[in-house]
Nucleic acid binder design. Structure first.
Lengths: 362, 362
DNA sequence: CTGAAAGCGCTTACAG
DNA sequence: CTGAAAGCGCTTACAG
């Protein structure tokens, strides 16, 4: 399957009777050329069906006009939407998009970053799987590769970042439940450990109002923190029994812990889920137990999914602007690639509480 | 933001006291080198933090180890899953993935293909937006660029392809409804025109049993054909009034036509939707009209979405193996890239009817 | 405005 | 096994 017809700039130059330098200038759109030669070159290029080889150009310019993205899982609606936002601005600027999945696994993430670096992407957007150890990201920074962090920050890495204000959004959601009269509110969260001292220690400190390095916390931990703050503000105790940890990005894990809680004595009157995967597992558990929303249980979900609007009752949710987050990240990255030199920026985008019918007034 | 520390093979060779050829051989893993020199080179590479420049390598080998994909919309669950499948096998084989969206628009698709070709991808997977005019795809073929078609075939283009057997799957779904006693069954489909003579002509021919070029029909048309065949087989007339065309990939468009039908006199007792976007629009319409499934209306949806299993009642659906389709497409493409030389293959993957609670027995 | 020459960072015959 | 040299397909100073 050898490629036929692969005309090079030398072929075009020969056919047009000019030097390769001149042919390059008109085809590449740089430098000056007389109208006459321009026309000759274009004509020759057309008959030879000349297509530039971006590799050769990149090798010499040092720019590939390609963005690299390491997402957790492109199948997950959060990433799919953010990726679409990134793609929109990349495309509008004539950039290509090299996409990889980390599955929230640091080893895979490192491998992805390496692949993208070798392919000489002009910059990277990464949703890191570990907010603490991230030598590969520090290395990028050291090598001067533009980098934007999406969704999660990294301890000690001062680079551009876009995320949602998770703490504020979660706090708002939980206060909404409290305002509706709920006192026993469960939270369903990933809370992958990442050596943060464990859930118990975290709860103790957070409940005590200990100022914590909330900025670099993993999102589900931030949302838990918002949940705790809502309780503190409203003068309600936090019941550790209602703090459900799935331990991984798994709907099944969420389903299991929710089932267990809802069949135990004194189940909560409301649940707050911290992302789409947890929401899905929770919905499965409720369907399985034949529990009705909001009669048997009220619910607010972090991340607004399509079905929440036509589910009956509609599900009250916190909508992150996924698409806009992706767009913002890509725009910031493009600015860095262009060489703009601000200090590192953090863009915290507002999440919106969408009230529907899943919260009962008690 | 100039990159520092960008060691080249020449730097490594110098540090190791060998020629660039030798350094290249050990770093690139080709040719033979003595253990001694190997060690020297590796050591030098390590201290210089050498990272190969894939561009330079590709320029000379003619291979980029990168796959190009043009999807309709990576945010759509069908594409997101298929892409994940593609990504899985690409990654397992050390290939990168360059992804673009066409938004089902031919001009954008052509632009995407051009971008990917210029970036010298080793092969392409495309879900084309037009199954008839596809010169850009014929050109790829002529240039010897490996190409796999996903989901849709192109008239006269004999290349590898993976898709679902849409006609059979739709037929099965509709016969399932008929078997449950339904006689007035509506279908909600995109049916973008693409010069196929229009819906009326199509219906007339299909109902008459006219053998049609079903292979290269756009999926929603194929599913309509399955719907018609089910009626023919069961000896039921096809009522054109129940044939709903959205005209575009828009949930809103589907919602509008479904609302109109369900509020008109003599609404159907069941609906069959031809993909996730149509399903979503349909669900919105039903929620809006406060229609209950399956009491007021039975439903079968093409494409199984997460929420269909925990919706109450569960929604009976046709599940396409999206992930497996993506994996199959990528595997076939990789085989072509390796130079394997079968005649063009068509892989039709089976879709599965998942019975849940959305079909009432009449 | 135009061309000859060098060079981007690698790999690939070709001698030895 | 190893090195000098050429070359992949472009762009970029540098003269003229």
């Amino acid at each position: 399957m050898a490629r036929i017809n692969k005309a090079t700039i030398a072929d075009v130059a020969r056919a047009a009777g000019v030097s390769t330098a001149t042919a390059g200038r008109v085809l590449g759109g740089y430098g000056y050329t007389s109208e006459e030669k321009k026309e000759q070159v274009f004509k020759a290029a057309q008959t030879l069906r000349y297509q530039p080889n971006a590799l050769a150009r990149s090798l010499i310019t040092g720019k590939t006009r390609t963005l690299g993205v390491v997402a957790g899982d492109i199948q997950n609606p959060f990433y799919a939407s953010a990726l679409r936002g990134i793609s929109n601005v990349a495309e509008a600027n004539g950039f290509g998009l090299l996409i990889t999945n980390s599955d929230e696994d640091q080893a895979k993430e490192i491998q992805s970053v390496e692949l993208l670096a070798q392919k000489q992407v002009d910059g990277l957007i990464v949703t890191t799987s570990d907010t603490r150890k991230a030598r590969h990201l520090h290395n990028l920074r050291a090598m001067g590769v533009p980098l934007v962090l999406l969704d999660r920050a990294v301890v000690g890495l001062m680079v551009d970042r876009v995320a949602t204000d998770n703490i504020a959004a979660a706090e708002q959601a939980v206060r909404h439940l409290i305002a509706a009269g709920h006192r026993q509110i469960g939270i369903v969260a990933e809370l992958v450990d990442e050596e943060s001292g464990g859930l118990d220690v975290f709860l103790t400190r957070a409940v005590a109002g200990d100022p914590m390095e909330s900025e670099t916390l993993y999102p589900s931990w931030q949302r838990l923190l918002g949940y705790i703050r809502a309780h503190r503000i409203e003068g309600l105790p936090v019941d550790p029994r209602l703090t459900l940890r799935a331990g991984s990005y798994s709907a099944l894990a969420a389903q299991v812990v929710v089932s267990r809680l809802m069949t135990a004595p004194h189940p909560p009157t409301a649940l707050f889920t911290t992302d789409s995967t947890m929401s899905e597992g929770t919905m499965r558990a409720l369907a399985e137990l034949n529990l009705s929303i909001p009669q048997d249980l009220s619910l607010i979900c972090f991340d607004d999914l399509d079905w929440m609007s036509f589910h009956r009752p509609g599900v009250t949710s916190i909508a992150q602007p996924h698409l806009a987050m992706g767009e913002a990240a890509a725009r910031m990255l493009l600015e860095r690639i262009r060489g703009e030199n601000y200090p590192p920026r953090t863009v915290l985008m507002p999440a919106e509480l969408i009230e529907r019918g899943s919260v009962a007034r008690l």
